[in-house]
Each structure stands twice: as C-alpha cells, then as structure tokens.
Design a protein around this nucleic acid. Structure first.
Lengths: 328, 328
DNA sequence: CGGTTCCATGTCACCGATGTCAATGGTCAT
DNA sequence: ATGACCATTGACATCGGTGACATGGAACCG
C-alpha cells in the first residue's frame, strides 16, 4: 500500500507536509499543496487508519454490544447508534454476545482493546464491574439494561411501568387470571417486568400465583409446551402477559385459537397482522439507540460536564385485537 | 493502560521476554516465565490489539458489508459469518450501506483501511471494480449478489430458478395473470428474479405485460398503492410474485382480502402465521453466510489453492396458504 | 538596519508489540 | 582444552502517521 512517505517522495516534500495537506492544515503553500494533492491522487493514497488510531490512541469507532442481533429490538438499537455515529464521521463495531454472560466480558474486553472512542452496551451479565477500569478512558453508555457494579450513563425504558400498564390493560378487559411468560429468567428487564406484573395484580387485590409465572419460552416448541401446561392447570389463566418480543413471537402460534387473551412487551414486525393482531407495549429502540449514541458524543465533546445518569423513557400501549374477546 | 514494558519492569525482564511468555514461546526458563506471569496477572495486562494489528498489518477481523441490517435476511447472513469468525478466534465488523451505491465504496474503503483479514460483501453498487486493488491483500467473498467489474468468489442463490419455480407454482394453481412486484429496480437479485419470472411465463406461452411489472414497494403505503393500481387495471392480475422479503412484508396487509394469490421470494419471521400464510421461496441466509465465511478462512489458510469461483445454492418452495383459493 | 514575528517546511521521536540478530553462558564432543 | 552448538535473554529497528520542536527565510517593527 502507498504510504505518506511514498506520496512525499513523489511530491518532493516531507511526509509531514503530506500529512498537513491531507488533514487540511492551513499552513501549506498553495503551490506545494497542489503538488501533494496530485501525488495523493496519482498514488491513490488511502490512509492506514490503524496507524492513526495507534498514534492517537483513539479510533473513530463506537462499539455496540447487544445480546442478539437477530432480535429486531436490538437490531434497531444498533442501527440507530450507527446512524448517529456516521453523522459524526465515525463508524460502529457491533458485537453480539448471545446471552452468555461469561463470553460477554471477554468479548467486551477484546472490543475495548481496540481503542474505541465510545461504547454502547446492553449487557447480559449481572456484574459489569469489569467495565470500571475503562470508564475514564472512554464514555460508556448502557441501553435497555441498567449497569450493575459500575456507575455509568443509562437509557432505559420503564419496564415496570410498562408491565403494570399491560397487566392493567388486561384487567380492564375483565381478566383476573393472568400468566407471566418470559424467555430467560436472569435478564434484568424480565425481572423488572415480572415485578411490574406482580405489583399491578397486587394493587388490584389479585394475588399472584407461582404457577402462573413461567420462564423458558425460547422458541415455538417450548412456548407451545408452556401454553399447554398453563391450559392444563386446575384453574387455567385466561390471559398471558409476555415479557418480551422473543417470547411473544414464540407464543404467536398458540394465540390463534384465542384460548388466551394476550399483551406482549415489545412490538415486532408483523405483530399487527397476526391473528389476532397482538396488543403490545411499545418500546422505541430507535430513540433509545439515538439517545445513547448522542450521549457518547456529548461526553466526548464535554468531558467534564455533568449529565443525568439515568434516563427512563416512557412506553405506551398499542392496542390491537389480542385482548378483546374473539369475534363470534 | 499497562503495556508490556510495564510488565517487563515489574518482572525485571525485557519487554521481549514478556512478549514471549504472553505468546507461549517455548524458549523461556520456567522460573522466568513464572515471574512474568505473575506480573501479567498483577497488572491485569491486556494487549493493545491496535499495536499488534499495526505491527503485523493484519487485524483478526472479518468485515461484513450488507445493504440493511434490519432486513432479517442480511441480519442472518451477518450473524452466520460472525459465528464462523468467532469459531476461528476472530471477530467481525458489520457495516450496512443502506442501499446507497456511492456511500458503499467510501464505506468499504474505510473498512478496508483497517487491515481487515477478510471481507464478505453483499454489494449494492453495480460496479465493484474499486475492490480490485484490494483483492490480493485479503480474501474478498461476495454473497447474495455477484461481483461486477472484479473477479472474486461468490456464493449466490438461484434467483432465476427460484423465480421460475415460484411463478410455475402459481401457474400450477391456475393463475395466468401474474404480477411481479419488487422494491428497488437496480438491485441485481431483483433483476434476476424478474428474468426468471419472464422466462417462466414465456415457457408456458404466457406473454408478459409491462403493466404487471412494478417496482417501488418499499413500505406498506407504497405497496398498498401498487396493489390498488394493479387491481384497477382493465384486466387485473389474479396473483402476485413478490421479489423479496421487504416487498412481501410491505404487501402483507393487502393480501388479507385475498384479491391476489401470492408467492414471495424470501421467507421472513411470522410469514407462516399471517392470513393467509404466505407461500415463499426459501433462501438459506445462514448457509450462505456460513459458506462465505468459511471460504474466507480457506483462502487465508491456502493462499494459492484454487477454488470454484461461483457457487449457486438451490432454493426451495415452502408451500403455505397464499396461493390456494380462499376458504369459503 | 537589527531584531522580532510569522510562515512554510522539515526533523525527530513516539505510540506498543514483535521480528531479527546478537550476546551470554553453558554443555558436549573431539 | 577448544570449538561447535544450543538455550535464554535482550537490544534495536520497524510498522505509518503525527505532535513537538527546529530551521530558515521573508516581512515587519521602531
């Protein structure tokens, strides 16, 4: 590859001058500039960005860590962060941890060793203290899930409130026996939503039942099992509150016979065209990603400014057909 | 951050010896090794991967360039490449070009300047000759779309054959007036599928009509317009062949009243739960990504071995309900 | 006209890891 | 005993771009 030195030789100047021209430094004679620009063009010079990153100790790259890129929610977050980064002349590196807490810290460490300028992370692990060492080297912003074991900015949604609203919505439609179904028990957001679910029942004087709270709806097969088990209970629930899009998508097939009313946490593509159309708690992954990315750049621009640590975005319910009684 | 030199000082050896220990070089006294290992641990040494990349001129990273990460097809390709890369101790950088051909070459150039070890690309632009310069610096593998203007490995699917099969399927169900609907005209895969569509009609003695071939189904609004226009034709089509998942998803709402039978190219989540369940040509993005990534590593391992340039994967039809007559 | 300032350009060192080669000291065979 | 050989370790240069500082000359000041 052609280096600045190659260009310098061709233009008859020093490498430093080439650097100046390339970076738009004013202090170059127009005449010299012209010669250098020609040489640059002739040799099709492309800067070795690794060298620059190495020298300056900072790559024009924002890291994004999410559990799963196939989940449309996180894909939208990542896409949104990327958009902001590109706006600012940077790019993003997206890594998905795959819901494995140990892999996470390794993967993140590996990422951070790349001299990233910033990091946006939706953590899986319950202990993020390993990030503390990096905190004063680059802005770290949490999305969707709060940091634990380290103080950092976080943009969250109102999991508990959303869950309460969802359950309230079902109760408003006459349901009292409402099940809670989720995929993975360890995830913080699911725990918060479970909490909201319980609170909502409690506040209406409905006692929550252990057997109505189920985890493990990972795919259609496991979700079907769960639905069977629920339906086979002595007093089966009449409604299901699903804790996230993954479990909702897994449950979709069993909702068709309308044994259960349904509200899911998290919209997903086509949810409105299913039978029945699913009522969901609407998150806003784009906004979440957008805020998080912007915060990274704000922190970079104003290292000593103080910011609100924790921002919780409200969620809204999109009412569709799945908690209305079936048309007869 | 702690560097090898820091560790060296603490262990009372030279940086080079630390390097040897860290990289598992045999030629180190057990005694020395132990001291160095302790120092490594004590200082929590993390190698500066930028420095290593700079030195060796090669990052343990595979680049992945796709048009749109929100499209489940490309998300699956990217995820699949990532899985293979992680298997091989590398990671991936994913960049989405957003269907903008000019942005593409800049973005890719920027990526390539990072000393990537390999590149997997689903190009948008119709001229990929700018990649020629890089071809002997790293393996470049095309997925989904064939290279133009540069010779490179490619893993494609049988667009034309798939389209022929889809149209044949519709004809088999008694349809003769079949429309072709796609999102963007410039994309190679869509053009191939249009070709297959025409060939299929031709081979059955059905003449293709200009007014049945429509582009611009980008979202639900534009797709609804298109459907209206088609339905308003003097002799409206009785069936639609949609060229890709994006247009299929956009068309989904207008398929519910069953004015049109339907086959779409490309499956997508929930397609089987819509009303009607959509019959689709099934691609295999995971396999495509897997093959492409493997090829990158094969090329890296055997730089002079010769490989088949072009691999075309067959596609299959998943028959569901959308081209059967509506249940009365 | 001497001195100060400013401008264009160059020289050099450095970021951190590692390949090359050399130095040191020991072992072994002749 | 002497040389050949090997194992262990270190010194140094290098990858490419850029920050800090130096240089040399023109312009400008009183």
């Amino acid at each position: 590859m052609t280096t600045m030195r190659d260009v310098a030789v061709l233009a008859g100047v020093s490498a430093k001058t080439v650097s100046r021209v390339f970076n738009g430094d004013e202090h170059v004679l127009p005449e010299t500039r012209k010669r250098v620009e020609e040489a640059l063009r002739e040799l099709k010079y492309v800067p070795n960005s690794v060298a620059t990153t190495f020298r300056t100790g900072r790559a024009p790259v924002i890291g994004v860590v999410v559990p799963d890129l196939l989940d449309p929610f996180f894909a939208a977050v990542a896409e949104s962060v990327n958009r902001v980064a590109v706006d600012q002349g940077m790019s993003t590196v997206v890594a998905s941890t795959g819901e494995g807490a140990e892999r996470e810290s390794d993967l993140v460490r590996q990422l951070l060793a790349q001299s990233l300028s910033g990091l946006v992370i939706a953590p899986v692990g319950t202990d993020n203290s390993y990030l503390a060492r990096w905190r004063d080297r680059l802005p770290i912003v949490f999305v969707d899930r709060a940091p634990s074991g380290v103080a950092a900015d976080a943009f969250l949604e109102d999991d508990e409130g959303g869950a309460r609203a969802a359950v309230g919505h079902l109760v408003g439609h006459g349901h009292e026996r409402i099940a809670f179904v989720a995929d993975i028990a360890e995830v913080q957001t699911s725990r918060n939503r479970l909490l909201g679910y319980r609170r909502a029942l409690e506040s209406r004087g409905i006692e929550h039942r252990e057997e109505y709270e189920v985890f493990g709806a990972l795919d259609r097969a496991s979700a079907a099992d769960i639905a069977e088990r629920l339906a086979g209970l002595p007093t089966p629930p009449t409604a299901i509150f699903s804790s996230n899009a993954r479990s909702s998508m897994a449950l979709a097939p069993v909702l068709r016979d309308r044994r259960f009313a349904f509200v899911g946490y998290g919209d997903f593509p086509m949810a409105d065209l299913l039978t029945p159309a699913l009522t969901v708690v609407n998150q806003d992954p784009e906004l979440l990603g957008d805020y998080a990315a912007r915060r990274v750049f704000e922190r970079l621009a104003h290292p000593k400014r103080r910011f609100r640590r924790r921002t919780v975005l409200p969620v809204t319910i999109i009412e569709r057909a799945s908690c209305r009684p079936a048309p007869s």
